[in-house]
Structure formats: C-alpha cells, structure tokens
Design a protein around this nucleic acid. Structure first.
Lengths: 229, 229
DNA sequence: CGGCATCCATTTTGATACTG
DNA sequence: CAGTATCAAAATGGATGCCG
C-alpha cells in the first residue's frame, strides 16, 4: 500500500505523495493540538475504518511525520505525536483552513460532525499577529467537557489540547457557540457580549482578546463567465 | 461521483472535500500559471486517465473553482482557467511546495517526470518579499521550448506561463538546471555564475535577482524517539 | 479496552479504445 | 483536440476477530 505516487519531481507533488491520501491531513490536524491516542483519533474521524487508521499511522511513522510516544504521568498511555517534520505541516493545514473559512463554511449540514478541537484551529487560522504585538497571555477555553488553551506571546500563538497552567483568562462556552466561532460566523467578542460565552480573568488580557482573531471575508464561489488573460 | 465527504463541520475538512481528492490540487497547480487546454493538462499529468481528468474538471467547474474560457486570439481555443476561488488556493499549493522543498526534495528519481512550470512555482515558493521591496521588474525565463515570466512589484510576485511584454531581464537555462532550481538544489545566482544559466538585460534588475529567492533550509525527516509533552 | 490484522462489498483509479 | 465508454486493478469502509 501507499505505492501510488505522482512520480513528479515537484515539491507540491512530492508532498502530496506523502500526505495527500484520504484522511492523512486530517490526522495531522488532530495531532496539531497535541498527542492523541489511537482511540481518540478513531473517535474524531468517524467514517475511517480502524484498519485504515492503523495503516495511515504506520505510514506517517515510516515517513517520519509522526511517532509513538508515551503520555506523561498520570496517563502513561501510548499515543501518537508529530515529529518536527509533521509539525511543519501546520502552515498547510492552516492554509486549507483559511480557504475553507472564506469559501466553504456555510451552514452546518445535517449529520455533520463537530469537535471543539477543530474550532481551536479555526481560531488559530484567524489569528492576527499584528494585533498581538507585545501581548503575552494564556487563554483557556472550556467547551463542555473539552479544554484547550492558547499561549500568545508577542505575535505568536500556540494552541494546545488540555488545561493551561495559570491562565490569564478563562473562556467558557457551549458547543454550538464554539462551533460558530470555528466557522467565524460570530466573533468571540460578539459571543461574550450576547452571553453565549463568558470570559473571566485578567482585565488587560481580556481587553486584548477582542482584536486577536480577525474574521476572514466570507465569499461565495461561482463560475462567472469570462474570457481568459 | 464526488459524494465521498468527510462530513465534518471544519474548515480544513470542508476544503479537502472540495480539493482533497487525488490529482485535484495538481490540477490547481497547473492552472496557477495561467489557463490550460485539456490536452496541456493531460500532458502534464502523466498517469491520470482522460476520463478522470474530465470528471475532475467538471467537478471543479461545478464547485466554482475553475471555468471554461476561450483563449484570446490568435489561439481562440477552449481552455480552463481558475475562478477567484480557485486562485485563492494558491497559498495552499505554496504551503505544500514550501514543505516539500524543505523535507521532500532529494535527488530526482528514475523515471520521475518534470515540467519547467513546476519549477516556476518552486521559485515563487522561495520568493522573499522583503528582498523585493521597492523593486518593480519583469523577468523572463526561457527553458528550452517553454517560456515563463515573473512580474515583481514591491514585495509581490506573479508568475505566468508565456513570454513577457518588455522583460527587464531574460534568463535562459537548460531543463536540468531549471529542475535543480525548482528543488532549490542550487540558486539562480550559482547557476548564472557557473554558466549553466545566462541572464541578460537591465543591470539593476539583474543585480537584485540574486536575493529574490531564498533557499529553504533543507532538513531530513526522522522519527526521533522521545516522550510526549 | 487499545491496537491492530483480516475479509469483503462498494468506490475510485488507471489505461486504453473509441467518437464527434 | 476534447472528451466518452469500458473494464481490470487498487483503495476504501465496515464488520469482525484476535491478543495482551
């Protein structure tokens, strides 16, 4: 398996040889917020058979994009994490996310899945580095059972699954609200104003929060008739 | 066909629903340097059956990412071009290319295909906007039969298939040299010094050329053992 | 239960032949 | 040139079974 290559001496094609198969980039997406166990992945990726999941992870290991790790105490359970090469795919996933936020995130469809972790990456895709200059703060997001945090440090953002050590601000929302943030259908700011989300903690960090994530300008795809260049 | 969706309310997954299938992003790549005819695409994508090519193009049209156009005189032949939504996928293709340049472009393999158009995008992926501040110049690349040009305008670059109107500099190289540039195995500068490439034209634009493309720092993938965060 | 391997019905694909 | 039609080979997804 995995022998199907494009056979092109081209950086894009070579990359797609490695991560272009079905599910692979979504596995990378899952691992971008921290190590995950086999069953976590299985649970996030409904529709992917266990056999295929195992095969894909083996492929990612063989190619040096992911590796097996043991979660630190008290978990001590085996999990998968990204290698440096895997982490370096983040710009690819973010580029896909930004395109999707602009061109593809209309109403949620019936039966469509949703996990808060995806929304965290959606937020990250909207992160405005300019707006974060000089800011150093830890934000914790609590979405029903799930917890994430974002560490912002002067124009950089890191988003990780799990609680923060000493968060400056804690944002608490329901699933639907957070889902709408993921799709940038509403801003964090709006959600807080309307009471759908609540934020508590350091006043200064709270005030900066408003500007940290900029909505992409939503557009509609259409094949307008025209003649070429 | 094309009914296989990830069914996730996630910007990344939604984007992959549209362009994540085999060959699709490579079709986008081909169209990023200008409109192409069916047979051009067929020729660039060895291994893709004509039926699948037709199906993919129909899909891209239906989804508003590409459209049929008529090439301007004297060609007057039908072709495919990207819509604004399609053009907007460029950051995705460039992110894939940059990753590939860093992690995946080792020696060309036996039987591996190569087209100069890919190299043009490889150059674009290395473009250093900072180095181009204040520069406004047209560079034409001639690689055996193929011609491309890059229009640089103060930190922006546009790369297009075909000759330029009044190029400031004309760079002429052989296929192999240009292929090595694509892989950033050598710099344009080195190729010119060694005589593998020649550049003629406006002295000022020529001098700036050296710094416009920055090699990504090449690295090797490996699954180093470690424990998790 | 976590982490797979196996089997099989359904889709996708690759390659070629054929048509307007 | 720009596709359609056809068909064998490969990939997928789902269920099931195994083993510590």
């Amino acid at each position: 398996m995995e022998q199907r290559n494009y056979n092109q001496y081209c950086a894009t094609a070579r990359t797609l040889d490695l991560v272009g198969e079905r599910w692979t980039l979504l596995l990378i997406r899952e691992l971008l917020t921290g190590p995950k166990r086999f069953s976590d992945l299985q649970h996030s990726l409904r529709g992917m058979g266990t056999g295929l999941l195992a095969a894909r992870m083996k492929h990612l290991e063989r190619e040096g994009l992911a590796r097996k790790v043991t979660l630190p105490p008290p978990a001590r359970t085996p999990a998968y994490a990204l290698t440096p090469a895997g982490v370096d795919l983040e710009p690819v996933v973010m580029a896909l996310a930004r395109w999707g936020l602009t061109w593809a995130m209309d109403e949620p469809r019936d039966q469509e899945n949703f996990h808060p972790g995806w929304a965290v990456l959606g937020l990250k895709a909207c992160f405005d580095a300019e707006a974060a200059t000089g800011l150093r703060a830890l934000y914790e997001f609590r979405v029903e059972e799930e917890v994430f945090h974002a560490r912002i440090d002067d124009g950089t953002i890191e988003t990780v699954h799990g609680p923060a050590q000493h968060p400056d601000v804690i944002i608490t929302t329901g699933r639907e609200t957070f889902r709408d943030l993921a799709a940038s259908r509403s801003t964090l700011d709006e959600a807080i104003s309307s009471g759908a989300a609540s934020a508590a903690g350091n006043r200064q960090a709270l005030r900066r929060l408003h500007d940290l994530f900029r909505l992409p300008h939503r557009r509609t795809r259409s094949a307008a008739p025209s003649s070429a260049s």
